[in-house]
Design a protein around this nucleic acid. Structure first.
Lengths: 252, 252
DNA sequence: ACTCAAATCAACAAAAATCAACATTTTCGT
DNA sequence: ACGAAAATGTTGATTTTTGTTGATTTGAGT
């Protein structure tokens, strides 16, 4: 068993796919060594190999989904680590849809004894198989672009739970309007989750503060004083008002 | 108890992995001493040893579900390909839990326009994000060893659907008793799915025909004549009676 | 189909780590 | 202080891992 095994697995699982050359630079060894030590991993089925790279078997390989997962990847990983750190073991947490939430779910695999409620099938399947976790999948009918549910039963499940944290995300942030998403049903779910959570964690990478997106957007429910915002760079000064009273954390 | 043990344990658990040389410098003793002192620690299971370093056992270990996914991998992949071929585009299909079903779900990503109902969060998240699919997740409360649901709402969802195929699996096959699983709830779900499907596909790799498992087991609902059994090797002759009237297919 | 660059593989030599045996030092009870 | 037992360091043979080389395969583009 090689000493690089854990690092390779972690890197590949986090990113879905990473090139052999990149791994060799990352670990400071030759590409040949990466191939050699990863061979048992692919034989055991933990990873798959393609020409030039290793790909994770634990993550969807569907283009649109993967694209979003790979946008601002390092930022999201850093934010996810910080969120997982904050949440801690044995906590209960509601998690919404969104690629950042997907990374948080992956980071939360290191936690133990979580109680989770989510309307994202990806989040649910990521965390459900960790021994000791209790995971509730909210909703039945999954929409195809991200595998999340927004039907009536989703609300019923969420409204039955009472959790320590709710993890939310946003498509963009506007200095006046606040945290925005594109669909009403996402707002509704966020609202239901927030009502039943002690504390909200809003996870947004820095790109969300700079979006020029002009598509119609809807406001997420307002955060309460003391709620947490995790991002990866200090937001521009224009957002000072919006973030007033919130617990802003910069992950790196 | 050696005076170094505590420090070694602490350092290794803290950092996950630390080289023997580094430990020897850290404690101001020879590398040989580190090996000697750490030997009882690895024998007692507190640490693992790799060439050049000691790694903590505390932190990262694969969930059992993923380990089962890797058992008889090639056989399951072959079976999954055959099943996906058979099911075709635009079909509707109910899929149960089980590692073989997980592989079938992955193979089904190549199909288009599927309507899927499943009680496995893993299957659901794998297929939900394929554009054009309609996926229903049956159930809310996910059990931790495989992320599948067996609660009342799971049955309600399944009983509302009418599908072309149901994809089933088994833990083992007995020449007299037939296809067996270990839990009653799995039988119940299989039963509900079969009642609402035109045709059943039973996917079992060859190892299931050879199991010596003596744990108590329960029969899956009886297959109808014309139902399909997909496996990867011709079953032993003792199973001829059981397979009588069924459509047996050998995948390679 | 053909070409070229990049990635892979196989084999070998160099380097690093391990192990076993022995010499030396430390510890501890008397 | 003395001797036995345990712990540590040292040495050299052995094993494992690693980087390099060159031949081969693969994949993208024409």
């Amino acid at each position: 068993m090689s000493k690089y095994k854990a690092q390779i697995l972690q890197a590949v699982d986090m990113r879905g796919t990473v090139s052999v050359i990149e791994l060799s630079r990352m670990l400071g060894v030759s590409d040949q060594t990466i191939r050699r030590v990863s061979q048992p991993l692919v034989e055991s089925g933990a990873l798959s190999k393609v020409h030039g790279a290793l790909v994770s078997n634990r993550m969807p390989t569907d283009p649109p989904f993967l694209e979003r997962m790979n946008l601002n990847r390092e930022a999201k990983v850093a934010i996810a680590r910080a969120a997982a750190e904050l949440i801690g073991d044995n906590a209960s947490v509601a998690i919404d849809t969104g690629s950042t939430s997907g990374f948080v779910a992956q980071a939360l695999r290191a936690r133990k004894g979580l109680t989770v409620v989510t309307n994202s099938a990806f989040v649910a399947s990521t965390l459900a198989i960790i021994p000791g976790n209790k995971v509730s999948m909210a909703g039945t009918q999954l929409r195809d672009h991200d595998g999340a549910a927004f039907d009536r039963s989703a609300f019923e499940v969420i409204e039955r739970m009472r959790v320590d944290y709710v993890l939310l995300s946003a498509s963009m942030v506007d200095a006046e309007a606040g945290f925005l998403v594109h669909e009403q049903c996402e707002v509704d779910i966020a609202n239901a989750m927030m009502k039943n959570a002690k504390r909200a964690i809003m996870a947004v990478d820095h790109s969300k503060f700079e979006t020029q997106d002009r598509r119609p957007a809807l406001r997420q429910p307002e955060l309460k004083p003391g709620d947490i915002v995790i991002t990866d760079r200090a937001p521009p000064p224009a957002f000072a008002d919006l973030l007033q009273g919130l617990d802003l954390r910069i992950a790196s």
